[in-house]
Computed example of a mutant assay.
Amino acid sequence: MGRKNYLVEGPSGAGKTTVCDELQRRGLHAVHGDRELAYRGDPETGEPTITGGHEHHIWDLDKVRRLVSATDEPVTFFCGGSRNFQKFIHLFDEVFVLDVDLATLDERLRVRPEGEWGARSAERERVLQMHRTGGDVPEGVRIDATAPVEVVVDEILRRCRAQSPGRAELGEWTADFWLDPACPLTRHTARWISLIAAEYPLRIRWRVMSLSVLNEHRGDDPEGDPDGYLWIPARVATAVLVEHGHDALGRFYDALWTEPDGTGREWIGDISEALHRSALPRGLAEAGTSTAYDSALRASHHDGVDRIDAEIGTPVLVITTAAGERRAMFGPVLGAVPARQEAIRLWEATLLMTSIPAFREITC
């Protein structure tokens, strides 16, 4: 199912199901092995059995092989445990083993719903005993699963990118992304490029441009901003970039467009609150009504806009390959965040079009 396939294993209670849910929430292709592949059977022969306990919890070998050999997904994660993993573990590009300490494992098992494996005292003791001896799970890259699931998945994805053949052969690419922090359409493109960075060895460097700077020479006001409100978030974003760097700007930008629970907003939120949620000083909000960072804002703006010999808007995207080849473009401008497969197709199409020297523009 994936051109790259990863197995996420670990003892009962380590968090395999939770990790799978989080991978799917991020738009990545992940298979709940214990739901979609598992049955009761003989670990050696694969023959189904009517009775049997934990030792007969196995995965369908033919299904695993079929899914691994398909190539309709760039990457697929198989999450779950099985007693016949020795039969198919060699098919995976890497194995990640979720690792928890004994006390954490015991605590998680004690709150399991009745009917789930490990909820009963005898089952729980068996899981804990296997944890003590290190049995029942394959060898693999150990991932600290006591951390919040978001951190666990971040670490798994970081390891995947570090081992990617694309990185080994081509090295890491860079996407310099110039944004006006208050543009809703730019937000769609930013979410798209973030999704691509989770799939490929791509580092994003967030930068600032400004529609206010872009349009200040015009007699009309295409943004409908007679009071100059759009200067405020652009100035604050510049202050974040200057004082704390590209990654901090990315965190601030995400917080500006999301609620505290992570749901997206239709318009930017409170700047001071976004700074606080990004672990940045609230005092940076004062830059919004000051000209202290205007020279830096203009410099950043022109650093992006001047790379394209055309009348453009936001965003500006500059892709640099590991070999140093650079491609600058305005956009792509998106009306919504594309679904994962469409996002990947758009990325591949963008690279194809911008690799043609004669290519100039498409307007839909």
Rank of each mutant, 00 (worst) to 15 (best):
K16P: 06
D254C: 09
A147F: 06
A14R: 00
L91S: 08
I312F: 08
E116Q: 15
A168I: 11
H301D: 04
I308M: 10
E22R: 05
R83P: 00
C364A: 15
A296T: 03
H244E: 08
P113L: 10
E325G: 11
G304W: 06
P138A: 01
W267I: 02
A145F: 04
A197C: 09
P260Q: 05
H188W: 04
F359T: 10
D154R: 01
V240G: 06
Q129I: 09
P184Q: 06
A234K: 00
D34L: 10
V137S: 05
L280T: 10
A182E: 07
H246A: 15
A287E: 01
T51H: 07
C160Q: 05
G228M: 07
A175Y: 05
E114C: 06
G269V: 09
D225W: 07
G33R: 05
I89F: 03
T189R: 00
S210K: 05
T350K: 04
P165E: 12
G245A: 08
G80H: 02
A310F: 13
T321V: 10
T314N: 11
V242M: 03
E169H: 14
D60S: 03
E169N: 14
Q86K: 15
T263K: 13
G10I: 00
V8P: 01
T238L: 07
S212Y: 05
A328Q: 04
L214P: 12
P74C: 08
L37S: 05
W231S: 00
I356Q: 14
L211A: 05
N215C: 08
L202P: 00
S272I: 12
R326Q: 11
C183E: 02
Y200K: 14
V208D: 03
R191V: 05
V151D: 14
T45G: 06
H32R: 08
T133G: 08
L202S: 03
I308E: 10
H56V: 05
D144P: 03
D72W: 15
D180S: 11
D261E: 12
R327K: 11
A339W: 12
P260A: 06
A248E: 04
G264A: 07
A322W: 12
A328W: 03
D227W: 14
T174G: 00
E116K: 14
S194N: 08
T258F: 01
I319L: 15
P338Y: 11
D309E: 14
F359D: 08
E169L: 15
W267A: 13
R167W: 10
T363Q: 14
A336G: 10
V208P: 06
A162L: 09
